[in-house]
């Protein structure tokens, strides 16, 4: 197995000099699902955006590199980088409403990319899209293709986005909390679909979530992120069997269990947080020395 995505030592800063990513290293092998967990504000979305080349203009990468199937994105010309990212990656976003253009019909949005960017014929694109809609179990493709986004339910929109993400056979998909905006019953269906398509298509997925329950269900490997720093990385089974970092253990204790929903949840321990703060201070100091 070769690395589909390989991030090494990636640091990014805000204009005020604060680091939002702290020497992040993580890799996703071809065809595997790597979960990226962490609490809100940890920088999960930032990592996804860095990979997809859409970081906000205020965030600057100051060191480290991102390799997509061996190509160092930082060394490519912007145009070549865009082409590479467009051809090899896709995003399944968090909010399926704003991720679709409200004034364009689903069908034209889905085929447009295949036709305009990848140069497919209209007919081939249409066949492909219908095949994908079938794979995400949309039973009335004609109606859906003719609809505007607001005419579909949240679950349907997310199915459409999953179909769109897989349509061009990307090597890597970044899924950024793809089920957070949906209600619980729909969440399960959507997760199942993502896993199913991922297996059939052999696509690597960087799966961003803050839900350890989801991690256990879908991923083979996990990276735990705290304040822009990877604090633990492991095979999923190993992580759940024997979490090494105190923060990971605290996170597990803070996750509700379906088997025992009324057990009291423990918020992350003060001592653990203090430990993390110290760890980050040390890392920042080590980083600041060469960077002034």
């Amino acid at each position: 197995m070769s690395a589909c995505l390989d991030i090494s030592g990636l640091s990014a800063v805000l204009p005020n000099g604060q680091r939002v990513l702290r020497s992040v290293s993580l890799s996703v092998q071809s065809g595997e699902v790597r979960a990226l967990v962490g609490e809100s504000g940890a920088g999960k979305t930032m990592i996804g955006k860095a990979v997809l080349g859409v970081l906000p203009s205020s965030v600057r990468i100051v060191e480290g590199d991102i390799r997509l199937e061996g190509e160092d994105l930082g060394r490519l010309q912007p145009k070549a980088r865009r082409t590479l990212i467009g051809a090899r990656t896709a995003l399944i976003p968090q909010d399926p409403l704003t991720a679709l253009n409200p004034s364009r019909r689903i069908g034209s949005q889905m085929t447009d990319r295949l036709v305009r960017i990848l140069g497919w014929s209209g007919e081939r694109a249409d066949t492909r899209i219908r095949q994908l809609l079938d794979e995400v179990q949309i039973r009335d493709p004609d109606r859906v293709l003719k609809s505007y986004p607001h005419e579909l339910s949240g679950g349907m929109r997310q199915r459409v986005l999953i179909a769109a993400a897989f349509a061009a056979e990307p090597r890597l998909i970044v899924a950024d909390e793809p089920t957070t905006a949906l209600d619980v019953t729909v969440q399960k269906q959507i997760l199942r679909l993502i896993v199913q398509l991922q297996r059939e298509h052999g696509t690597a997925i960087l799966f961003v979530t803050h839900d350890l329950g989801v991690v256990a269900k879908i991923s083979q490997k996990v990276s735990v992120l705290y304040a822009g720093k990877v604090v633990e990385e492991a095979e999923t089974a190993a992580l759940f069997a024997a979490p090494q970092h105190p923060y990971t253990r605290a996170l597990m204790a803070a996750t509700p269990r379906y088997t025992d929903p009324f057990a009291s949840l423990k918020p992350v321990d003060e001592a653990v947080l203090a430990g993390l703060a110290a760890e980050i201070a040390v890392a920042d100091q080590a980083w600041r020395r060469p960077h002034g």
Binding site: L52, G53, V54, R82, T83, I85, G86, A87, T89, A90, L91, P93, T98, A99, L100, N101, P102, R113, I117
Partner: peptide
């Protein structure tokens, strides 16, 4: 959707 279009190229 604008960001998506940028990712798509």
């Amino acid at each position: 959707y604008v960001e998506n279009a940028r990712i798509a190229g």
